Simulated scan of single mutants.
Amino acid sequence: MAPPTSDDDSLWLRRFHPQPEATVRLICFPHAGGSASFFFPMSEEMSSGIEVMAVQYPGRQDRRTEQPVESVQELAREIHTVLTRWTDLPIALFGHSMGASVAFEVARLLEQESGIVPAALFASGRNAPSQHRSNEIHLLDDNGIVAELQLLSGTDSRVLGDLELLRFALPAIRGDYKAAETYRYVPGPPLRCPVVGLGGDSDVRVDVEEVAAWGDHTSGTFELQVFPGGHFYLSEQKAAVVNTVSDFLTARNPITLVPSPGVAGG
């Protein structure tokens, strides 16, 4: 049974394919400029024992009238508040690019403030928190940001080719880049949950060594998975990524979580 929901839940979380028999929930965090729908294919292909829920950040699609959140920590705190109502099942976190930083900060809040250890953190296409990069893409003009999107090929080509759509999307994209690029890791206790670092072998923005450094941020197990492709390798390697996540979560008994007070199914 799903826990009781609020209006905030439907704003922040998208549940494309409900799985009544699921034994774990995979919460997915999009990249800068991305939306929850980026994870629709993953949700569609995931095994029935894993229910995928994708985070929708403010400032895009049906939340386009809202101001983007320009701080990773602030974004994480908002999402953490919502997620504590969904801990009737163990939860795992999957973040791509900027989303990996957000997922990491959510995992810290879950462990340190809610006493909830995630089943796993999957950190994709992002340098480890301690491996800061000083990119300043959010300070570029609109043409510069579009050039970066074209380099990474992470935004729907139909949007890049439609100036009207792009005009609406750029404020959210710029806000996300600001959040990602101004994020600074604050040292603290390592995570207790297992961490899996994922990356593309030809990513122009993140080296495999920077992904491997995620292992420094957990006292649990760490695995590194490298796939053929660039920054958005997971679009081309969808089946392999889904299998990696599914195999990891089903090969072990998920960590027993402590449900938050008042959550159904606890």
Rank of each mutant, 00 (worst) to 15 (best):
A54F: 11
S101F: 03
T218Q: 02
S202Y: 00
P171C: 05
V106F: 12
F248A: 11
S235F: 11
F222W: 06
R174F: 06
T65D: 02
E74R: 13
V82F: 10
H132Y: 12
V242N: 08
R158D: 11
M1C: 09
T182N: 11
S71R: 12
S48W: 01
G33H: 08
M53H: 11
V241N: 06
T23V: 14
S47I: 00
G33Q: 09
Y183Q: 04
L140H: 12
F222L: 08
L224K: 10
G154P: 01
A123T: 05
P4G: 07
L151K: 15
W86Y: 13
D162G: 09
T221S: 15
H138Q: 02
S47N: 01
S130E: 07
S6F: 12
T81K: 12
L234E: 00
R85T: 07
Y177I: 02
D216F: 02
V226I: 15
Q225S: 11
A179S: 08
H96Q: 07
G262C: 06
S97A: 15
S10T: 10
V55H: 04
A100E: 02
S10F: 12
T182P: 01
G200I: 01
S10C: 00
W86D: 03
I116P: 01
R14M: 10
S130A: 14
R64W: 01
V102G: 08
P190R: 10
P58S: 07
S202G: 00
A180C: 14
Y185S: 08
L151I: 04
L13A: 07
D62C: 03
V52L: 04
I255Q: 09
H31S: 06
S246I: 00
V263A: 11
P171D: 03
L165A: 13
L26F: 10
T256E: 14
M42Y: 07
V24C: 11
T218V: 02
V72G: 11
E45Y: 09
